[in-house]
Design a protein around this nucleic acid. Structure first.
Lengths: 229, 229
DNA sequence: ATTCATTAAATTGTCGACAATATTGGCCTG
DNA sequence: CAGGCCAATATTGTCGACAATTTAATGAAT
């Protein structure tokens, strides 16, 4: 017995993909009649889907005017990094305290997968499109704090994905980042919460600073931004 | 020209109040036909309002089954405290860095109001029903990080309010908490972010530990819980 | 030509009706 | 009497139509 999926739920996922892929451009208006035609659904169902997009801050709505895809800005991206540093640092510390044996196994096998991805990929602007987020997702899950999980995985990570896709961010230090992932897992495994938090924060801070350098100081090449956190 | 308010928006506020006040009991089902009758609105408008309640996690929804007011638990409350310690600590640090002169004035006048409230109130289980949250709200605002603001003020504080109302939490250390508020503002005013964060974290941690003591060790009197953070 | 008012078109907001699903209660069977 | 099946009922999901509002298009006046 699989959980039933309503039309708005499906639409929500479809619209997210369309936004991530740029089929619905950033900043553009979501026309209800148009989308209802395109996706062959009633406006009611569409409106509920848009409501969910609003909830995870991918679109903003104005009464009597309509919904638009959020505008991206470096300032907002840096804000998100700041919040992530704080929350994911905490997640790493809690994970070190509460992670289960089973979760450790899964986390290490995830690392193995990523290690393989790095080896097999020729160019260095490689793997972690979702893989990196998967790692962070797993850490948050291992914290066993559902409030924290909801904030990060339901809200923030959606925006992080949007920034990655839209800015076409690629890692400039993939091996470095991967190595940090390993150290984080090692610290968690031995129950060293202090260290896990410390590395995680440094890990995310490094990404933020990379973005700052690229976008603030000389922003000619936004395609080479940082992604590995 | 005042911003137009749609029916779902109004309903959202009304339902929130009804939930906070216990008119719609915690854990109970939100019957669409019943509520539509009571509030004299169509089910469509009601469903959108319920969607917003779901977004800030005051209700949970199951497809084809309906919406229920969230179940409260001490575990969840402690989770929220943990997240708040992390986020509000950061907010205090950022506030020390970015607060404007105007915001400092408003913050200090808020403190004066609270000081007066404490003086004029005879019993010690006094003032801060919303006043305390107002303080924390102001600090977050002064951080000038809109992402942080959204997470705390749109999502978490709603739940905090629900816990306060439902558990009838009262401060056991109001004067102590107020003094901590003063120290936080002082640190922010002199631009000492490290100190502001440190005090804020200790402030919230103290509240969490108070709740732990009351609910975990001997929980006979949930009415005397901690509220001042 | 530019601005403003007026009107026409399009879009969003709201509603009630129908379809699909879940829940309830009764009935039958073991 | 317990447990499961089936019909009846109620609730949620979905849709298309109408109303309210915003946006645009048109034209008149300065």
């Amino acid at each position: 017995m699989t959980t039933p999926v309503s039309i708005p739920e499906r639409l929500f996922e479809q619209l997210k993909s369309a936004i991530f892929d740029g089929d619905i451009p950033v900043g553009s208006k979501l026309s209800e009649p148009e989308l209802a035609r395109d996706y062959q659904v009633s406006r009611g169902a569409l409106r509920e889907a848009i409501g969910r997009l609003e909830a995870c801050r991918l679109v903003t709505r104005k009464t009597n005017v309509g919904a638009r895809v959020v505008e991206l800005s470096v300032e907002n991206l840096l804000e998100i990094f700041q919040v992530r540093e704080s929350l994911e640092g905490m997640a790493a510390r809690l994970a070190a305290q509460f992670i289960t044996a089973d979760e450790i196994v899964r986390l290490e096998s995830l690392l193995e997968t990523h290690a393989h991805d790095i080896e097999s990929s020729e160019n260095q602007a490689y793997f972690q499109k979702e893989g990196d987020l998967d790692f962070h997702y797993s850490i948050v899950q291992a914290s066993h704090n559902t409030t924290l999980f909801n904030l990060l995985c339901n809200d923030l990570y959606q925006l992080v994905r949007l920034y990655r896709y839209q800015f076409g961010m690629r890692s400039q230090r993939a091996k470095q980042a991967f190595s940090e992932h390993r150290h984080i897992v090692a610290a968690i495994k031995r129950g060293d919460g202090e260290m896990a938090e410390h590395i995680m924060r440094a890990h995310i801070r490094a990404s933020r600073e990379s973005v700052e350098r690229i976008f603030i100081h000389e922003s000619n090449d936004p395609l080479a931004a940082e992604v590995n956190a």
